[in-house]
Design a protein around this nucleic acid. Structure first.
Lengths: 204, 204
DNA sequence: ACCTGAACACCGTTCAAGT
DNA sequence: ACCTGAACACCGTTCAAGT
């Protein structure tokens, strides 16, 4: 269980195979099928294990400002998925319906309702933010050294033909943007957008 | 090449194996390695093939409003990736640096610069929107029947204990939100947020 | 009753051997 | 010179056979 998470963390989601896990536990694959119905079942349990980790220090400080609470929640989830690369990929294989995922969703939805979001807006805002976090977390990639890849990508932009690609060339120094920065930037954009909608809703 | 795209479209990215493609072409795997250096190389070519498709009717009508242009670009890319499920997954395997991907990026960046975005903001806005589109497109999933899954998920929410999960229960009728709607909603939130930043920037 | 090794039908990739 | 089949080291899953 924790051994499985360790493999996914250190070597990426595609390294988490039944055989690999079995040999890590000095056991055989058939043995695993006594504890887990299938690989999908194993994945489900790992995923909820990570949601549990995201859950822990969530509620102690109830934030006054919903925007801060939103940011904190989303960033925390992103950070946890960043510490467990590969788990985001596993999340694609099945929707997270484990007990801890349920608790986290409940908290997030309650937070929105408590802050005066009408139900339809609360649901859409939560759903969209959750997808946003997962979408970016997936792109963190299996186990890669992000800095190296960014450097390589930057070189690609700098070597472009400036007449064929003037805009890209002009922005070569600004690209690529680190994924973590994109996430933080995009999250704040969405929260700013939500704030406008919420204000609209409340003044009606 | 188009056969490979067809397999990925119809049966998901994980169905696109060298053996499967070879047998589709009445050939053998070894033959494929004469045309493609590796599976990664095959993936690269398929990906750019899809970017080409997204490229076609992009430039004819230069939009007056950058927000409309932004929306149109992002929605078009999302739609194309939605028609080629599985390709978004393939995009994770390597950054898109094919010729058509380059052209698309150039157009998007030029659009932002032409509309008065300063370089650092243009770069971050583009990068974030591109990630956003891909992040959501990936979650469209391999080949699934989305409606069935949404119905199943809705049932999960309706069967919850209403005292343990009051907020989730209260929003059971609103959840889950269809992914396409989340995408459209989130995109408009980000554009609204960007509009605020751009206004800030221009009045300075 | 519990666990093992081998089996089955798959992967990507390579390469000797045929034509 | 071109192409094939078989090989190698993997995968998830199952199951007869051992203890």
């Amino acid at each position: 269980m924790t051994a499985a998470l360790k493999i996914a963390d250190e070597e990426g989601s595609q390294a988490l195979t039944m055989r690999r896990l079995a040999s890590e536990l000095n056991s055989s694959t058939a043995m695993l099928y006594r504890h887990f119905e299938s690989r999908a079942d194993l994945v489900l349990q790992i995923v909820d294990c990570v949601f549990k980790e995201a859950e822990l220090p969530a509620s102690p400080v109830p934030q006054a400002d919903w925007r801060q609470a939103c940011r904190a929640l989303a960033r925390r989830m992103f950070a946890v998925l960043g510490q467990h690369r590969g788990v985001a990929q596993l999340l694609l294989e099945a929707p997270p319906n484990g007990p801890h995922a349920m608790v986290l969703r409940e908290r997030a939805l309650a937070m929105m309702l408590d802050n005066g979001f009408a139900p339809p807006l609360a649901a859409r805002a939560y759903a969209t933010l959750a997808r946003f976090v997962l979408g970016f977390a997936i792109q963190l990639g299996g186990q890669s050294a992000a800095a190296d890849e960014d450097a390589a990508q930057s070189a690609v932009f700098h070597q472009l033909d400036r007449t064929a690609f003037p805009a890209t060339f002009a922005l070569a120094d600004e690209l690529p943007v680190p994924l973590e920065e994109e996430f933080a930037f995009g999250l704040d954009l969405m929260i700013a957008g939500l704030d406008l909608l919420r204000a609209d809703e409340r003044e009606r």
